[in-house]
């Protein structure tokens, strides 16, 4: 099951799990049909957009193992680029969103170069510095393109001709579709040669170098892909809210996103889904106590990291393994580092 022939395919799932995933998507997709509370739907669309961002962040942080803390800047670049395209050309919104993604991907690739020679914490500082510079440029933009600290001028949404509820539903399904596509894309990439190469570079850099696995090529690809997804998420955010300010890339959103990723399980496939879902739920439950929200999130983050290594996905797979000897698809079906290195070699 772990042999090289599995490279480039989605993790093999049992019929039951496949059914489960399809059922989950169907249930989530049915929510706006059954439930039409405007406030709740608005909240859920925002959560789904965050999930798109988290999926791409998880890819670069968890799977590629690069301490990229500039992700929110890439996200913002996607949003602002989309806005500029919308504002200054007559292009339709969906194309503008995709172009925003491309622009974000391009900036992300630029960011990949200096990280190549850096390790862990140094990478985080560099990428964070990058984010700070981007935020500064956006806020102090001398040409007035970005609207500075007042936020971007209002742009048209994706569905300007629909009524309020229909619009909300349309956004919901659009973003959900993007979530599904992004998650499957990351799942596929993870077991593809790219994913294996990335994990080899992450876990056994010397081995990767000896085998001629080029960090430059693979890291650029990883940054391009994650940048694109994050940019699309940013574009969706702008289209949906029809405005944006640089506060989307502040420290608080960053803390929340990191918490989501870690609680779900960094580097796992369903970690972002579980983490984003759970934290959104908790945030919603604490909506009347905005003051203590961050304290509680911080405490949860601390407890999860200290006592539940691998996040909730790790916990679930361990529990399942303990319950039966059933092979856990999400984690164990993937090759280990050594096997990964071997199959990369076979593929090169």
């Amino acid at each position: 099951m772990n042999d090289a022939s599995r490279v480039g395919k989605l993790p093999k799932l049992s019929a039951g799990s496949r059914l489960g995933i399809v059922a989950l998507i169907a249930i989530v997709a049915a929510v706006p049909v059954v439930y039409t509370n405007h406030y709740v739907l608005t909240f859920l669309v925002t959560a789904l957009i965050t999930l798109v961002l988290n999926t791409s962040w998880n890819f670069v942080l968890g799977i590629a193992g690069v301490w990229n803390f500039g992700m929110l800047a890439i996200y913002a670049i996607g949003a602002y680029s989309e806005g500029l395209v919308m504002l200054h050309t007559g292009m339709p919104a969906p194309i503008a969103v995709l172009l925003g993604g491309v622009a974000a991907g391009a900036f992300s690739v630029l960011l990949a170069f200096p990280t190549l020679r850096l390790f862990g914490i140094y990478t985080s500082l560099l990428t964070f510095s990058f984010a700070q510079v981007v935020q500064f440029v956006i806020v102090n933009d001398p040409k007035g393109l970005t609207g500075g600290s007042f936020g971007f001028p209002t742009v048209k949404g994706l569905y300007p001709n629909l009524g309020p509820l229909a619009q909300l539903r349309a956004y919901y399904w659009t973003v959900l579709a993007v979530v599904v596509v992004a998650t499957f894309a990351v799942a596929w990439i993870r077991s593809s040669r790219l994913g294996i190469a990335l994990r080899t570079i992450r876990d056994a850099p010397a081995y990767a170098a000896a085998r001629g696995v080029s960090p430059l090529k693979y890291r650029m690809l990883a940054f391009a892909i994650s940048g694109f997804i994050a940019g699309v998420a940013g574009g969706l955010y702008l289209s949906y809210n029809q405005s944006i300010t640089s506060s989307v890339m502040g420290l608080t959103p960053m803390s929340i996103d990191v918490t989501m990723l870690v609680i779900g399980g960094l580097g796992t496939l369903f970690g972002p889904v579980i983490g984003t879902g759970l934290l959104t739920f908790i945030q919603q439950a604490l909506i009347d106590y905005p003051g203590v929200q961050l304290s509680i999130l911080g405490t949860i983050l601390l407890i999860i990291v200290v006592f539940v290594p691998g996040g909730l996905v790790g916990l679930i797979s361990r529990t399942r393994r303990r319950l039966s000897n059933w092979v856990e698809e999400d984690e164990t079906a993937l090759p280990t580092t050594e096997e990964a290195a071997r199959s990369t070699e076979a593929g090169t």
Partner: peptide, 18 residues
């Protein structure tokens, strides 16, 4: 390094929120 980066960050979040 990464894990403690996150845990001390979590403590920082709690301190400033408190």
């Amino acid at each position: 390094e990464m894990v403690t980066f996150i845990t001390t960050f979590a403590v920082a979040i709690v301190f400033s929120n408190l």
